[in-house]
Design a protein around this nucleic acid. Structure first.
Lengths: 349, 349
DNA sequence: TGGCGACTCTGTATCGATTCAGAGCACGAG
DNA sequence: CTCGTGCTCTGAATCGATACAGAGTCGCCA
């Protein structure tokens, strides 16, 4: 009545009186045997309750599993919550979906897992890394497996295959826009700093996305302004990014002299800054200009609508997915960005 | 210089001059060999470029892969876009993340894939099905593999292990609320109908989530009102759910006599209905009452704030994940719902 | 009649690891 | 001196399938 273990292909072969190869062919190469025999095999399989070739065994023999992994190094909820991440993953998932490939959300890299066991143990055909390059060393554990690997937005990564955007040019353009409008007291609402507390030999690194900060600095220095006149405040990781932005915005706006313009590293942060301004009855853009980055739906829905740097997030996901599927080993793709001027920027008061 | 294929555990064993078992133990059971030998083995592995035990081979031998699958039967983008889905998946992913398990987003079940090959071929330890029960037959292909399997919100499913909510009670309470307020001309903004065009022998089924419709009917009939006085409009699948809701709302509001209250099957649809009302300068709640379902963040952010049926979405995800991890084969969990009255409902004009 | 190709089907090696029972050895207790 | 015990390490079997080379049969054509 109740068999401990599932029948295998060999059981079916025995039942029908054919070789294992033939049963395998019945599933994988219908043209290699007569329709008649095939039907007999399939019927026997049905009888025995054989669920078809085991995916893992097949994966071992074939050398591919039909799964690609995604590593993400921020609080997991952001992947579903942060509009930029959502758009990116949507692009990614759509292409994989069409290709019949599964997308495995790998567990976060853990501070207490310096060997990146998770990456070494993931049964995948390839990997998309959607996190800061600071994890290069851990990701090496994966690269050693010689599987296709695409890094997305990996600032300083040396990975062979990557897709990214012109972060630096983006914030540079945004900052120049503000300076051109006449702003001189600038502030930056930056991403949180990365935490490596638990990792020996890994000093605290700078803020996330140094290239975006670099672009701001470029524009500031291009204009002959002193970089240290720029206030840089980093977000924390409590709650949503927007909430964090509101706190950062608060810290920026409570300084004196109060900055007249804020460059935020993402639209969520920018929206939070606008929230903070509203909290303080500071008018945007009359008393404060704010620029964002990403051009997610958030940017169009803030009041006032956000001036921001557009990046093709869905396309970025699609590109990454396609690179992985095509197995292009050494492609380096940089997608363009574009400043979109809306209503959140104006000359300073 | 360049070897065609990666070294295997056997190569390492040969290099060090020990048995394969010992190398395996070096990775999996450090206490089974002397620290000294272990270090020697690990060093040799490093030298040879051996990336550690192959996950697929290990999976085959061990019988588990560390991956669970998620099937979703709506346009994939909804998983990241629809707030209710987002909350659910967040709960799911959080628990798996903590457990060190990967969550594989399986490709959508395809109309042209009646054998559910995707499900039969997924190399997973278990499956969460987040789709309508109408796919029972296809999911049977998975169940045959005797792996843990949890159905979420699977209306009419007969699956052994499921978690859901009291859909029927929820819409019933919401509808009763409207009727108590005095509404008599009710309309329903329903989910899209399922499409089975391509599948022989599968007639078009009713709308998604019949239980929610059933609850509405319950309340209507409890009140002694004729069911066929209730207008039921189904959404389509173009664009976002909210956009679809706006179109459905338009169709409802353009009828005459115009209904005075709308029961929407989700907050997104409800928000869309409110959008449609605004398009037509119909005041909510003065001229039109709207109730939603889910109590996602959307509900609090519409203007006016939405009266809705709260369901514990994150908890639903967590519960499903935990059931799967615990391998509870026959649990049936029904989470409670609760009517939350806000500002979108009032007596009819 | 011989030869060739098409069609079916088979046997064995292989994918890369883990498991399990047990062998060899050293050491302390009795 | 012997036995039991603990520590290391080994060998063979096994997980469940697919690849590859080839064997047998049959019909067709020269």
């Amino acid at each position: 009545m109740f068999s401990m273990s599932l029948p295998t292909l060999a059981d079916v072969a025995r039942a029908v009186g054919v070789s294992r190869t033939t049963v395998s062919n019945a599933y994988n190469r219908p043209d290699q045997l007569s329709k008649q025999l095939r039907d007999r095999i399939l019927a026997a399989a049905e009888d025995l309750g054989y669920p078809g070739p085991d995916p893992v065994a097949r994966g071992l023999r074939r050398g591919r599993t039909g799964v690609v992994g995604l590593v993400y190094d921020e609080p997991l909820s952001y992947m579903f919550t942060d509009p930029a991440a959502v758009l990116f993953v949507t692009g990614l998932a759509t292409v994989f979906d069409d290709a019949g490939t599964s997308l495995a959300l790998l567990p976060r890299l853990r501070v207490d897992d310096p060997d990146a066991g998770v990456l070494a143990e993931a049964a995948v055909d390839g990997l998309v890394s959607f996190c800061e390059a600071s994890d290069d060393e851990r990701i090496a554990a994966f690269v050693a497996r010689r599987l296709p690997f695409v890094t997305v937005d990996g600032g300083s990564t040396r990975a062979a295959c990557r897709v990214g955007i012109d972060d630096r040019g983006g914030t540079r353009a945004a900052t120049r826009h503000l300076i051109t409008l006449g702003h001189r007291r600038l502030a930056v609402a930056a991403f949180p700093r990365h935490h490596h507390e638990g990792r020996p030999g890994r000093p605290e690194r700078g803020a996330l996305r140094p290239a975006r900060l670099g672009g701001i600095r470029d524009a500031v220095e291009d204009a002959g302004l002193p970089w240290d006149s720029v206030v840089v405040e980093s977000a924390d990781e409590e709650g949503t990014r927007r909430e964090a932005g509101r706190r950062v915005g608060g810290r920026i706006l409570d300084r004196s002299p109060r900055p007249t313009a804020v460059v935020a590293m993402s639209d969520e942060l920018a929206a939070g800054v606008i929230d903070a301004a509203r909290d303080r009855a500071i008018s945007v853009p009359d008393e404060l200009s704010v620029v964002g980055f990403d051009d997610t739906p958030t940017a169009a829905s803030t009041a006032p609508a956000l001036t921001t740097v557009h990046q093709p997030l869905v396309a970025k996901g699609e590109t990454a997915a396609r690179l992985l599927l095509d197995g292009a080993p050494d492609a380096v793709v940089e997608l363009p960005v574009e400043l979109v001027v809306r209503e959140s920027t104006a000359p300073p008061p």
